[in-house]
């Protein structure tokens, strides 16, 4: 049997005395679109940082295509087929749009010859052409030479996704891609990501917007206080009692019960 594209087993992580990820295990199957959801502070971004190698887990293992990547340096992981975006836009503000995309190609262009070939001095090199083509395919070719800091938020959000795509990843990790977008932009982003998924890229998406999650993802993993509380199809996530409790508190018959629940008495 093919190993899952991404497999987490017994992953835990503490900062000082605070355990923020506790014994989390789940698989992301190749070709799937998985959502990672949970209330604020549930540990979603920390989990992304563990997967991409910004932090190292204290316990457990993270495997990509069946190979344990726990000991692989963060900068080498993108070369293995895993690229990510960030919760707060982290494009390089002083680089142009095309240059940001070309930075995304770095994992495939790290040889000395690639490093010392001009990208634009004598006509456009294959890397620049490839970056501009990718921007064109994603409908972002109106701004190639603009310095990123001057562009609108929604555009920058999309450019960050395209930068991750420039690495030709098998697995794309997106941290709240729809945060801060208006409903029209969110719908457009959802279509945009669905198109990317059509090309065979597996998505793992952290997102709060449940409408966005339902329209894009087929599978959901829910975290609460650093523990996995749900792992199943997106369709039934909102009926799951544990998930409801995590988001809404305990379900109660009446107001009095709610009050006693606050005092720690089990009423439901």
């Amino acid at each position: 049997m093919m190993p899952p594209l991404l497999a987490l087993q017994g992953v835990s992580k503490s900062f000082g005395g605070l355990e923020v990820i506790t014994d989390v295990a789940f698989n992301v199957e190749a070709g799937g679109r998985t959502a990672l959801i949970g209330p604020n502070g549930a540990g979603k971004t920390t989990l992304f940082n563990l997967i991409s190698g910004v932090y190292r887990q204290d316990k457990g293992s993270i495997a990509l295509s069946g190979e344990d990547i726990s000991d692989i340096a963060s900068r080498r992981r993108i070369g293995l087929g895993m690229a990510r975006s960030f919760q707060n836009i982290r494009l390089m503000p002083h680089l142009s749009v095309t240059e940001n995309i070309m930075l995304g190609q770095q994992a495939r262009a790290g040889s000395l010859a690639d490093m010392l070939t001009p990208l634009s001095l004598f006509g456009r090199t294959k890397w620049r052409r490839e970056a501009e083509e990718l921007l064109g395919r994603m409908g972002l070719d109106t701004y190639p030479g603009e310095v990123v800091a001057t562009l609108p938020y929604g555009i920058r959000k999309k450019i960050e996704v395209v930068r991750a795509l420039a690495a030709s990843p098998k697995l794309l990790l997106l941290d709240e891609p729809a945060a801060g977008l208006n409903p029209t932009e969110t719908a457009a982003l959802s279509d945009f990501l669905a198109e990317i998924a059509e090309t065979g890229v597996t998505l793992l998406v952290v997102e709060h917007d449940m409408g966005f999650v339902r329209s894009l993802c087929d599978h959901a993993v829910v975290l609460n206080f650093g523990r996995k509380i749900y792992d199943g199809p997106t369709g039934s996530v909102q009926e799951d009692p544990d998930v409801l409790e995590a988001y809404l508190g305990r379900r109660n018959r009446n107001e009095d019960a709610a009050a006693s629940a606050r005092e720690g008495i089990h009423a439901a």
Partner: peptide, 20 residues
């Protein structure tokens, strides 16, 4: 590309590292 990477490292080291 070396120049590009220099400017990228100046802007954001964590992201540059994750970009390879």
């Amino acid at each position: 590309r070396f120049g590009l990477v220099m400017r990228a490292v100046h802007d954001d080291e964590v992201v540059s590292d994750l970009m390879g």
